[in-house]
Simulated assay, not measured.
Amino acid sequence: MIRSGNEAWFRVEDASAIGAARRAATLLASGMGFSETTRERMAIAVSEAASNLVKHAVEGMMLIRPHPQAVAVVEVLALDKGPGISDLGRAWRDGYSTVGTLGIGLGGITRMATAHDVYSVPGRGTVICMHFTADGRPLPASHVSGLIRPIGEESVCGDAFACFDTPEAAVAMVCDGLGHGEPAAEASRRAVKVFQEHGDLPLTSLLERLHHALRASRGAAVAVTRLDRASGRVVFAGIGNIAAWIVHPEGRQGLISLPGIAGHYSRTVREYAYVAPPHSMVVMHSDGLSSRWDITTFPGLTARSPAVMAATLLREAGTRRDDACVLVLKVTP
């Protein structure tokens, strides 16, 4: 079961944020049983990545959280709207430095991680994803990742995601509780609980259960999808304004969600079937992200990991005026 929660976001715009991010990472790792040596390596990598954001980035952000799929794994994402890295090959080299880039120490930063992925577009910014494991063993490839970010300085997010994932198939949900703050978060928690208990139902039955369970809440927009990786078949059903797309390097295909508010009113629940091409991705997001993003302006992004894809879309299309949630599923493992 993959679900949202325990996210720790940091705005990395001045030097004080470097220590805060480092302390959050080491505290999380300590609670997971990381050795002192492993914690020190992670602390150095997090400090260097945060320092680079302060020195060279624009709108630098860092996310530190338990990996949403794996046990005893810390995931760190650093994202910015800075100048980007024009030559990633050179940036991997120790000691490489060019004023105005985010290339300083990149090779050393990622070498300290158990696994990493980097995506950068000159003039658009950079996303770095690092994973640190407690025992140092390699991390299996991930087929799905999601991110949530609360509005402004809220401590809770009214959006949530959840997913059951295997190499053969995935069933996923995105929920956007009406409004924001604790009442919206409570609606999303109800949805996650129902999904966790009934995720094996046909999508229309699952969505009807979600609709019924949310009657005691302020309501939500909610959508569910089922992906069969062997055939590329995608089945989707939604109530409200959860955006969903089949995304490939040449563009995207929108999936149909019906108007309404789950828990309050909706038309008859319907599901729609599509076929996704190999090596594409299924993307679902709340209206905390604008739907105007254009995948063709991000060459090679669909070949990156789901975590980097999700972070890039959140950075590019996310709004500070609402809670935000984005979930990415790889069609081909």
Rank of each mutant, 00 (worst) to 15 (best):
Y274E: 09
P259V: 09
V46A: 11
E250V: 01
R39W: 03
G125T: 02
Y272A: 06
E40C: 02
L289S: 03
L314G: 00
T38K: 12
S217Y: 08
D87C: 04
V71W: 03
V235N: 01
A230T: 11
E40Y: 04
V58Y: 12
K81T: 01
E168V: 11
A113L: 10
L214M: 09
S205V: 04
V99G: 03
V46R: 13
R93N: 11
L63T: 02
L139Q: 07
Y119E: 05
A70S: 05
F34G: 03
S4G: 14
D117K: 10
S217E: 15
P306M: 10
P68F: 01
L178R: 08
T225H: 04
S305C: 01
T133A: 14
A49R: 06
G123F: 06
F10T: 02
A230H: 13
L88W: 05
T98Y: 14
R137Y: 05
P202H: 08
V282A: 05
G84R: 01
R209F: 01
R65N: 03
R218C: 03
E186A: 14
V247M: 14
L27T: 13
A91G: 06
A170P: 02
V222M: 06
V331L: 09
G300Q: 11
C325T: 04
E153H: 10
K330V: 00
R321T: 05
R41M: 07
R3P: 00
G33N: 05
L329A: 06
T312D: 05
L258I: 07
R320P: 06
P299D: 11
P68H: 07
V58T: 14
A185D: 05
A50R: 06
R270L: 12
A187P: 11
R189G: 07
I239H: 02
I44Q: 14
E168W: 06
S145Q: 09
L327P: 05
A160G: 09
A24P: 01
N241V: 01
S35V: 07
R11P: 01
G300L: 07
M281G: 01
H198A: 13
A169E: 14
R226L: 00
G260Q: 11
G31F: 07
T133S: 15
N52A: 08
G136Y: 11
L27C: 08
A172L: 00
E316F: 08
H279S: 14
L201P: 04
S305Y: 07
N52L: 02
V74A: 06
T204D: 09
M281F: 03
N241S: 12
T133N: 06
L258A: 13
T166F: 12
A49P: 02
A213Q: 01
A170T: 04
Q253G: 02
V58L: 11
D228K: 03
R39S: 11
S155M: 13
L203I: 06
R321M: 04
T101E: 15
L27V: 10
V144L: 10
I109V: 15
C157T: 05
D176R: 04
F132S: 07
A169C: 08
T302W: 10
A160L: 04
L206A: 03
